[in-house]
């Protein structure tokens, strides 16, 4: 089986699953835990936020995530400057004792598109400080190349705006990114349903990261399973090598021996 030996390697760490999932927007911790399990993901993203010191009734997210089983990928969601993102990453490392970070520096709150100038600045500092940086970026091959040159462990171009569910809007850019960089390319954001995830993988991407597509589905647990299958199916189809597209038909049955 070609799939069995096929591992995702990020900064020297080996992962079997190519699907990464978020932990936001679930109805309950129980639903989140089941959905993550069904997704087969080994890397889960989390956000860093202030503890509500006046209301201590809230449980800690980490009480529900088995850290023997999952690698935490803290994000810098909500950061609009390099300084804020760097500060958040330092806090995340202290809280989680791991140096993996999903670096996002946003440009505005309507599109949640990355501010690539600030992103590059933050990436530079964080790589220097020893972080394993996985940046959420525009689907721009030049920015991706710059992120790789800085020393990011992967690049994570968006397929479409965060939470939009529009799918992979520019597969050609993703293909160019795949030819431009040698670090893993993980499509982060935009996936709406299983076929979107499969398309990303069929393009040759190394992984897909999603949150809303699963947590926002009518049945998040079933969608998590669908995404698990889609990512594996897409990867296998990529490795198997698809047939070229042609305008006209080619018969599947022999042309000889047709009755007359």
């Amino acid at each position: 089986m070609v799939e069995k030996k096929d591992k995702l390697i990020i900064a020297g760490r080996e992962f079997t699953s190519r699907l990464m999932v978020g932990t936001g927007k679930y109805e309950s911790f129980k639903q989140m835990v089941t959905a993550i399990e069904k997704s087969g993901a080994e890397i889960v993203t989390v956000a860093v936020r202030r503890v509500n010191i006046s209301d201590r009734s809230k449980e800690s997210l980490l009480d529900h995530i088995d850290l023997q089983k999952y690698t935490l990928l803290p994000n810098t969601a909500g950061c609009y400057t390099a300084d804020d993102a760097i500060r958040t990453c330092r806090l995340a490392r202290e809280a989680g004792l791991s140096d993996f970070v999903k670096l996002e520096v946003l440009g505005d709150d309507k599109t949640l598109f990355p501010n690539n100038e600030e992103l590059l600045k933050a990436a530079q500092t964080l790589v220097r400080e020893g972080f394993t940086v996985l940046p959420y970026t525009s689907d721009d091959p030049i920015v991706c190349r710059k992120l790789q040159d800085i020393g990011c462990a992967a690049v994570m171009p968006l397929g479409a705006p965060i939470g939009s569910g529009l799918g992979i809007r520019n597969p050609y850019n993703i293909r160019i990114i795949l030819e431009t960089v040698t670090v893993p390319v993980i499509v982060d954001a935009g996936v709406g349903t299983a076929s979107d995830a499969a398309i990303a993988m069929e393009l040759g991407c190394d992984g897909v990261l999603m949150n809303t597509a699963i947590a926002g589905a009518k049945d998040p647990v079933a969608m998590a399973e669908a995404m698990n299958m889609a990512v594996r199916a897409g990867r296998l189809a990529y490795l198997a090598g698809r047939i070229p597209k042609k305008l006209y038909a080619t018969a599947s049955s022999p042309l000889e021996g047709v009755i007359e």
């Binding site: 956000a47 202030r50 800690s60």
Partner: peptide, 27 residues
């Protein structure tokens, strides 16, 4: 950043600013 090992030895002083954070659900 205040390392965890220093919580027990660090005295709070007038005007100190603390940020206390943890992980919550997110994408």
């Amino acid at each position: 950043i205040l390392p965890k090992n220093n919580y027990k030895t660090t005295m709070l002083r007038e005007g100190d600013q603390l940020e206390v954070v943890w992980f919550v659900g997110g994408g």
